[in-house]
């Protein structure tokens, strides 16, 4: 009995209506925090952090490159888990989150690759190298894009969701490969600066703005995920009575 009640709670959490109404008041806060953190971190990192002893000022690209890569990888797990929950419990909201996460993930992976290329030119001497880290990151971009493109192959919305969730799950193996690629293969890419197990191999004056940027990107990610999902909810549920009431109310207010 008690177990049953727990599952109903779980299903209520998966209701698009609940999500839409609950997240409404979070948006301005999340937006403000993300904007403050990102602007502070960027100004600090670009203008106030000391230059690197060997790389000079080109190292400042790290303040975009590392946070974007972080979230591109963490976001993949979020997306894959959302897909798995959707496959097992058939929760619509879960698939909507998955689709939103795929769009954001693709954009962040693109940022990581672009900033990496622009950083590589002055430091390594090449925009692009077929090195294990960079190649596996490119595969991540294709996985994200593949999930979005695959949806168009299906006319049935449900099978589109299922197919892209399966592709997402298969792709999860790529994430640890990306993370460990710098240790497993001879790569041009340097090993991780920030590790869970030890102190960052970076001077505190340079690390502080990086930390601010990473936190800023996390908040930004949450904000973008909520915004995309809310738009998706309205589109998918536009015939549901609560959406109609909501729109009618808004119209009445105008």
């Amino acid at each position: 009995m008690k177990l049953n009640r727990q599952w109903t709670w779980f299903h209520r959490l998966g209701s698009p209506r609940w999500f839409y109404q609950k997240t409404q008041c979070w948006l301005p806060w999340l937006g403000a925090i993300a904007a403050i953190l990102l602007v502070t971190g960027l100004v600090w990192g670009l203008a106030f952090a000391p230059p690197d002893a060997r790389q000079g000022n080109s190292f400042r690209i790290i303040y975009l490159h590392v946070p974007a890569s972080f979230l591109a990888l963490a976001g993949y797990y979020l997306m894959a888990i959302a897909g798995a929950v959707g496959l097992i419990w058939r929760i619509k909201l879960s698939f909507m989150l998955m689709k939103s996460a795929a769009t954001i993930g693709a954009a962040l992976t693109f940022i990581a690759l672009f900033t990496g290329a622009v950083w590589g030119k002055p430091t390594w001497g090449a925009y692009w190298v077929w090195d294990a880290r960079i190649t596996s990151m490119l595969i991540l971009l294709f996985l994200y894009l593949g999930m979005l493109v695959l949806r168009h192959a299906f006319t049935n919305h449900e099978s589109a969701n299922k197919a892209s969730a399966i592709l997402g799950l298969v792709g999860t193996v790529n994430v640890p490969i990306i993370y460990k690629s710098v240790d497993w293969w001879q790569t041009l890419h340097q090993p991780a600066t920030i590790k869970l197990t030890s102190a960052p191999s970076m001077h505190p004056d340079m690390f502080a703005p990086l930390l601010v940027m990473i936190l800023g990107f996390y908040c930004f990610y949450a904000l973008a995920l909520i915004l995309f999902t809310r738009a998706e909810i309205l589109e998918r549920e536009r015939r549901a009575s609560w959406v109609r009431e909501l729109v009618a109310e808004k119209q009445g207010g105008l």
């Binding site: 000391p50 230059p51 690197d52 002893a53 060997r54 790389q55 190292f59 790290i62 430091t123 390594w124 001497g125 090449a126 190298v129 041009l188 340097q190 090993p191 991780a192 600066t193 191999s201 970076m202 001077h203 004056d205 340079m206």
Partner: peptide, 18 residues
């Protein structure tokens, strides 16, 4: 035909490096 430089994961200001 191509020469690439590899750097490590340590970042520090010039004064500290000195």
């Amino acid at each position: 035909t191509q020469v690439l430089a590899k750097h490590d994961e340590n970042y520090m200001p010039p004064e500290v490096a000195d």
